[in-house]
Computed example of a mutant assay.
Amino acid sequence: MNAHTDLIDRYFDAWNEADGARRRELIAATWSADADYRDPLLAGAGHDGIDAMIRAVHERFAHHTFRRTGEVDGFANRLRFSWELVTPANEVIVKGSDFGVVDPQGRLQAVTGFLDQVPGGL
């Protein structure tokens, strides 16, 4: 594993963490203080904004899990990776690809997400 893969696996640990205190610890370890996340449906800035965004996803998609699909591709401070959102019955309902910028301390400074597959009505 490389540093980018470790970082993105921790990113998904934060997305999947239901316990608020533990999720905030993961966010602090994974994201810079001035971090920014954007996709067509969500946005969050700083640790508080990212936590609120993830909490909202947990409320809408209770017991669903995000997982990385494929390898993390990266060079210098840039990376990209793909993912899917899976129901408790292990059905994939959303797929996406994200692009990130890593700060000098090895934490995410920015992530831009793109939705590759979404169900109707989302």
Rank of each mutant, 00 (worst) to 15 (best):
D36N: 09
A28V: 13
T87M: 14
D36Y: 11
I50H: 15
D34R: 09
T69V: 14
F81L: 11
P119V: 07
W31I: 01
L122Y: 00
V102Q: 02
A110G: 11
V118H: 03
D48F: 01
I93Y: 05
G70L: 07
P88F: 10
S82I: 09
G74C: 08
L26R: 14
W15A: 13
R78F: 07
A62W: 00
R78S: 06
Q105E: 15
A62N: 10
A110H: 14
G113L: 09
D36K: 10
H64S: 15
G96H: 01
L115E: 02
W31E: 10
H4V: 01
L42N: 04
V72T: 04
A62K: 15
Q109E: 06
Y37P: 02
V118F: 02
R80A: 08
E17H: 04
V118P: 00
T87C: 13
D51L: 04
L108E: 11
A21Q: 14
G44R: 01
R23H: 11
A21R: 11
M1N: 10
G100K: 05
V86M: 01
F81V: 07
G46F: 03
D13F: 00
P119I: 03
L122G: 01
A43W: 07
R68I: 12
V92R: 12
T65D: 05
V92A: 04
L122M: 08
V94F: 01
E91Q: 15
D9E: 14
G46H: 05
A18S: 10
A45E: 14
V101Y: 02
V86F: 07
Y37D: 11
F114M: 08
D51K: 06
T69E: 14
V118Q: 07
R78Q: 13
L115V: 03
G44Q: 11
D19T: 13
R55Y: 04
V57H: 09
Q105P: 09
I93K: 03
F114V: 12
E25R: 07
W15F: 15
A43L: 06
P104S: 10
R60I: 01
R55Q: 06
A29S: 12
L108W: 09
G74Y: 08
L115P: 04
R60P: 00
V57K: 09
N77A: 11
G100W: 05
P119E: 03
N16V: 01
D51T: 09
D39P: 09
S82K: 15
D103I: 03
M53P: 02
L79D: 03
A21G: 12
A28I: 06
F12N: 04
D39Q: 09
T5S: 15
T69H: 12
D103L: 06
A28F: 02
A21T: 14
R67Y: 05
A14V: 02
